[in-house]
Each structure stands twice: as C-alpha cells, then as structure tokens.
Design a protein around this nucleic acid. Sequence first.
RNA 1: AGGACUAUAGCUCAGUUGGUUAGAGCGCUGCCUUGACAUGGCAGAGGUCUCCAGUUCAAAUCUGGAUAGUCCUACCA
Length: 961
Amino acid sequence: MEKTYQPSSIETKHYEHWEQSNYFQPSGNGAPYSIMIPPPNVTGTLHMGHAFQQTIMDALTRYHRMMGRDTLWQPGTDHAGIATQMVVERLLAADGKTRHDLGRETFIDRVWQWKAQSGGTISSQMRRLGDSVDWTRERFTMDEGLSEAVREVFVRLFDEGLLYRGKRLVNWDPKFHTAISDIEVENKEEQGSLWHFRYPLADGVTTVDGKSYLVVATTRPETMLGDSAVAVHPDDERYTALVGKYVELPLVGRRIPIIADDYVEMDFGTGCVKITPAHDFNDYEVGKRNGAQLINIFDKSAAVLPVAEAFEYSGKALEDFDGTLPDGYAGLDRFDARKKIVAEFDALGLLDSIKDHTLMVPRGDRSHDVIEPWLTDQWYVAATKMAQPAIDAVKNGDIEFVPKMYENEYYNWMNNIQDWCISRQLWWGHQIPAWYDKDGGVYVGRSEEEVRTKYTLDPSLELRRDEDVLDTWFSSALWTFSTLGWPHDMDMVRRFHPTDVLVTGFDIIFFWVARMIMMTLHFIKDENGKGIIPFKKIYMTGLIRDENGQKMSKSKGNVIDPIDLIDGIDLETLVGKRTSGMMQPQLAAKIEKNTRKSFPDGFAESGTDALRFTLTSLASLSRDINFDVKRLEGYRNFCNKLWNAARLVQMNTFAQVEGSDELGAPLDCGQHGGEMEFSLADRWIRSRFQKLEAEVHKHYQQYRFDLMSQTLYSFIWDEYCSWYLELSKPVFWNENSTDAQLRGTRKTVVGVLEALLRLIHPIMPFISEEIWQSLKPVSGETGDSIMLEPFPMPNNASIDSAAEADLEWVKGVIMGVRNIRGELNIAPSKAISVLLANGDAEDKRRYQENEAFLKQLAKLDNIQWLEAADQAPASSQALVGHLKVLVPMAGLIDVAAEKARIAKEVEKTQKELARIEGKLTNEKFISKAPDDVVAKEKEKAEALNSKLIDLNAQVAQLDAL
RNA sequence: AGGACUAUAGCUCAGUUGGUUAGAGCGCUGCCUUGACAUGGCAGAGGUCUCCAGUUCAAAUCUGGAUAGUCCUACCA
C-alpha cells in the first residue's frame, strides 16, 4: 500500500478486474435479487441525482451479492425522444439546416450517429462510480428487442380495446410541433392581463340594466376568433332572460348563442364567459355539453389560420362551416394576433378595461414554450381502465413505498388518472405500428404484412404507416420485463420477477413508476393468470439540490458532474464547463460569478469512495437533499483515516524492513493457530463490533443509509481508531508482551479491520478492496475479491458485557485526566502522576488489570492507589463513579484556574440536580411513572448530590491553601 | 382552492414505540508537528428544539391552531 491515500491510483484497476472476471453477472446460486436501473437518457450525462441513486442501488446490490443472493443489477439507457431530437436539431441548426432538409431517414441516421458519439459517456461514468451492473445485459429502449416489446404491447392493448385513436384537445407544443401528455406540462404563475371586451347583443336585445352588450373577460384575447358561445350561470338573474339569445362576435361577425352552464362562477368578473371549445380544456367540456361549435383557428405553430375550421365533437369536420376570419390575421403568431385584436377592440370602442392579472401559464417541460390546447388526432392508452389493479397492488401491500407518505400521492393521482396521450409528432422514437388506407381506415399490427393478413386486406390496397412515434415513457413503462427478454425469452423474466426494489426519485412517480406498475401487472402473469408486480418496494430518494437548496439545472449553472468531484477540477475548467453550450447564453456572466464565489478553488480530488460515502450519508428519508461540498471533504478525510489505520495495522502485523517503507514478512497473527491471549481492548472491540454488524443489517432492511453511514463512521473513527488502535499500542510496544498476547492482539487488530472492510465494501468498494487485498497475508483470506466474500453477520457469543463495562471505566479514567490536562493547560507532552482514591474492590481490580493502558493513553508516569486511610494531597479531581482520579497540584496547577474549573462543574451539577429533584418531589411523578424510571432518577440524584458535596470539599481545600 | 411535506447548534442534517446531560459532519476557540494520519490529536464553546394552546406524572417527539417555506394537484374566464 502507498504511504498516502490516492484514490485515483486504486479505483480503475479494481473495477477493470471485477468486470473482466464477470463478477457483476448473476452467480446462478441463491435466491434471486434484482434491481432495474432507471434508464438515463443515452445522450446525456449523469448528474448528482444519478450518482446518488446509483450509489444506493450499488450498495444494495453488493450487499445482497455478499449475502449470497443470485444478484442482477440491470443497466441500460433510454432514447429520450424530445430531448434527444432537440439536441440533434440544435446541431443541425448550427449548420443552418432543419430536420426537414435532411428527411426522416437521414435525420434518424444522424441521431444514431449522435448516440454512438455521446452514448459512451453514461457507461464510463457508471464505471467510475463503481456500479456493479451486469454490462453483458445492457439494454437501450430503441434496441430491436425492446422495440419489438413496444410493438407487441401496442398491438395487444389495441386488440383488447385499451388503446385507441381519437381527435381531441391535446397539450400542443407549438415549438416542437408535437403533442405532449398532461404531466409534461408545467404550470407556473406569471403576470398577465385580464382584458374585458364588450360583445354586442344581437337582434336589439338589451340586458336587465339596459345595456346593448355583454362584457366578457379573457386572458387570451386571440382566442376570441374561435368563440362559439357566451356562457352565464343558469341561476344568474342578471342574464336568465338572455339565455338562448345571441351576441354578434366582433371582428368576425359570427352570431353566437348565449348559453347557461353551471361551470360559470357568478361572482367572478361580470359572470359572463366567452367559450372557445377548440382552444381551452374547460370550454371544450362546456361546449360539448351545450352543443357549441368546435372552431379551430390555429395552425401547428399557433399562428392564425387563413380560414377557421369547425368540427363535430366526434372529430368529423363540418363541411358547410363558414370559417372566414377578419383580414390581416392569417399567418399571424398568437401573440401578435393578441395585440392586433386588443387594438381593434379599442378602436371599435369595445375594449371595456384592462386589468393586471396573475395567471397560471402552461409551459412545455422541454421547450418552455406556452402550451396550446389544440385539436388533433392522437393515440391514447385507456389508463382509466388499467389503473385499478395498480392501485390494489399498493393497497394490499404487495408493493410498498419507502417512505410511506408517497403512497398518498400515488393514490391521489391514480384515482384521478386521465387517459394517456402516447403519440408524439417526432421522428426519433418507436414509430407507431398502425397503417391507414386512403379512406381513413385504421389497421394495427406488428408489421404491414401482419396487418394485411389480420384484416384480410386486398394486396392492391395502398397503406400508409402512421408517421408519429410513441412517448418515450411508453417504452420505459415496459422496462422491468422488456430488458429481460419479453415476449420471447421468459426464463429471465420468471427468475427475476418481481424485482426487489425500485430506486428512483419522487419526481417521476407518475411519468414512470405508476405506468410501469400498470403495464407489468397487465402483461406479466403467474401460472394462475394473476398479474405480477414489477417490484416489491419503491425507495423514493430525495432530490439533490445545491448547497443553497436550489434545484440543480444547466440554466442556473449550478450542476455538478459527479466525476468532477471524484477527480477534482480547477476553477477555470469548471467555469468553462458551466458556461458552454447554453440555451440562454446571456446567463453566462452570472453563472461565472456565482461559480467563482462558491468554489474559488474548484473541487479537490475526493475519489469515488468518498463521494459514495457522502451520498449515502445524505440518504435520509427527507424530500430535499442539499449537497454541500464541505460534507464531501469530511468524508474524504474519513477515507484517509481508514487508509492510515490500515497502515498502522500493517506496521504491527508485518515485519519492518530496515530503512524502507516496504513491508516485510507477515508476523504471526494466529492465521495458523497457536495460543492466543486477548486483552480487555481486544474483547471490547469484538463485542462492540457485533453490535455494529447488527445495526448495519437493520439499516439495510430499513433503507436508512444515512444512519448506516453514521454508524460506520463513528465506529471506525471513534472506537476502532481513537480507542482500540491506541489501546493496541501498549501490547505491541511492550517488550514483555508474551507471544500469546501479541498473537491475540494482532489477530484482533487484523480480524476486526478485515470484517470492517467487508461491512463497508458496498458503500466504499475501492478502498475496501485495496486494503483487503493487502491484508491477505495476515488475515489468512484467500478469495480473489472482497466483493465475493460473505457479508459479516453478528455473533452473540462474542458480545462481552463485562469487557464493555471495564473498558468504559478505563475510558472514564483517561478522559478524566485528559479533561484536567486540557482545562488546566498541562502540556500533553508532560507526563504526570495521578492518585486513585475512594475506590472499591472493582475499581481496584480494574486499575490493576489496566495500568498499562492508563499510563499509555493518559500519558502517566505513575499511578498510586490510595486506601481509605491514606491522606490525599491537594489535587485537581475527576470522578469516575465513586472513584476519584486525583492529579496532585504541587508544581503543576494554578489554584485560580482550578477553582474556576470546579465552579463551572458545580454550576452544571446544580442545574441538573435541580431538574431531577423537581421531578422527584412531584407526587404524581412518583405515583404514576414506571418504577424503573423513578429509580433511575433517584440514582441520578444521589450521584449528583455526592458529586456536589465532593466538589464543595475541594473548594474548601483550595481555600485553605 | 385542496392536499402533502418541512421548521432542532453559525451552516447542512439525524433524533426509531413520549422518560437522552438533545446528537453528527462542517465551521468556531484553546493547546499540541508524540514513532498510522496536521486530510491529524486532545480539550472546549455553542441549542427557550418556529410560536401559542392542549393531552400527560413527563413533549423536540402526540393533538389542535398560528406563522414561514417547499412541492404536488386543480383552477375564475
């Protein structure tokens, strides 16, 4: 082992060895355990959220592998339809081209090229993270096998009536010219206006108060070109007389009816609402109920059509509709049309008022363009019909969310689920397996050939394939079984279903998790035809945010590439990375400034293990996780600590080579038997270790990686290093230690470390492997890799309560002396003498058995046991139970400082005593609290009382000097 | 508008079924280059557990309310 811990020099070599040795593949032995990776976007890069989730998945995978399970962690990527197409279109745009210039086939070739070029990033990042995925089974959602699964599911759902095509209002992205599903729309509050327009009443009718017009309010004036009614509330007495009458739509000149519908809120605005069924989801429903015409005025870019089109609610076009629109609007963008309409209303004296208004604006999650409700033909999955089994699976406990609170969110959404719009007007994706004849007949099948056979079509009939592709989530919804070979190869599906746990973020619970549950239950059945769940547990991780709680995003410039934390990165490179390739280059200056301020030195190299340990230590059950680089630094130091502890172990278990750092021959550590004598410290650390093992197992069961990390950290640092290794030194350094004593302590020092390494391996795979390998000559281990070794199991036989109590006593005495040293400024280098007084037989035994430990760790040159009759000199005193640890003051101690120290102690003790006596004088506490609680409090009070008396005596003694 | 979640040390967070001297990391103060480690050691300071009320012998923990923040769903045109 190198003298200093250098992660870069150990990580890659172990990973390569593991992968080449096929250690990541299922062993074929033991009960199956499987995890499906949430597939990242193939052309993207991993961010902190991925690193976080993958660390957890890898820890779970390695843990269960070491527990003897037949373990599969399935890797893969998805094709991310819109996101990927968008990137490639941007590349083309740089050359002044659009995808239409290339044509569909050439464009798709270009996307595949881009995938080939960028697709390796993800897998190399995963290798750097140490992910023990079975690379031989890596899958991509556009692979032939997975594409076949997509076609299969589409066709079967269609044949079962669970998938259909229809003309409906969809969320239309006018920038990408595609429909998106409701959950891909982000609603954000924005500042806008509320325009009040006057719509003249037709046929000379007037309102109750004698006006010749109605006032309607709108946030979207441009849609008035498509108005087909004005609605009022049926109970609104101001307007009841007008229901059934008409208004004359300004600019357009169309007569549109006044209808009554209780959708209208009487109290809002004027109580009159313009109804535009083809451009608003609510208006669509109102229009449908009341037979208002469905009038579309926009093209696919949300620019005004030359002539409006009208439809029946069945989707059939109305042939005889007069769609004439006012002059000057054809081809006008929606926002320009808005300005023009407002101006014309104003000019006509029909603009009643304009008010500032805050409204929710729907924007596409990829394009950030304002989404337009638009009438188009789309394909839908009848999710409303598939939801129930998926709800039941969670209700009856087959699938369990961790943390539990997400189940409510799941039910809430599932109970109000909408049919899922799955078609996308893109080129990159799975093309829909549907064909049309020229009369609009629809034929669905796995191929054109199959369609012709299935529907017995005349060979001469011309068929045209649907040009649209499917939502990426449609293919990811099949992920748990399509990756395993469905529909042809069912062996793996049967073996690894249901998978054990899904580790993912709560932000995709609807996009992915819910849909996977529905699809898997529907398509994967057991021998009795009952649906099989995709996974037993869903571990929902929090969202990784930056150190200020901000969501990490490219446009904020606060994303962190996990590899940069592993390898380190200098400030200039980091700034360059964050400000290049931006969608909004104007933000670059601000990002640069923030980056320089937050990380003036860039990131230091921390190594994968430190990063992974940091991530697991953050994995509490909370919903937001703020990632602070400071935390990483702390755990990098922890790796260093472990490394150096291992070096100390080696120095005491291998022969020293004169004038060299190289290790000599392994010493006798009991590998081959021989008599062994274990010191108190040996027995203590073994006992403590059993409890640690039990804790670690428990935390795996409960997915509390944060608590597990903390437990391991404090054991290694505070118990193994700070106490145990220090306590091993007196044995190693004492020339009088017997062979049996040396063997016993060497055995323990090595044995506990070796087991610790296995215990921590799932979180810190590299450093644990490196040290474990170097210990082989003294640990007696012969396996090829730590990752194949059994995970440590607690053994109650090694629990030694007496040793634990004795060692607590030893620690107490040492800490007492150290406290006096610290408070009274006695140099650590100065050896001092102490007296032990007021002790009982147990204290005496402990003192006699552990004198060497006390002398070593408290830096004492002499310890003297005082019997009751002996007179103690003026001393500074610490208490360990009844036992007084006395440091004589002569020549050492400043009386004033000592008095101050005691005063502080007295105050603390009095405060505590008052609190407890308050309880004990309370009748009700005595009578109602359980006896053991009362007894405990009484004991405490007694101890505090005698301590107080003692402290006062000391003060008196000092005063007498 | 409805719902969920959060509020604990200067910062980031733990605190399991009510009984702890309320913990950790980072930061801070003092001392120390002792033969694993200064990426270190030892000692220490720092908290009316957001506020109010209630239940209880006992509340950071349970209940109700308030305030602040985050998120989700829906939406008044």
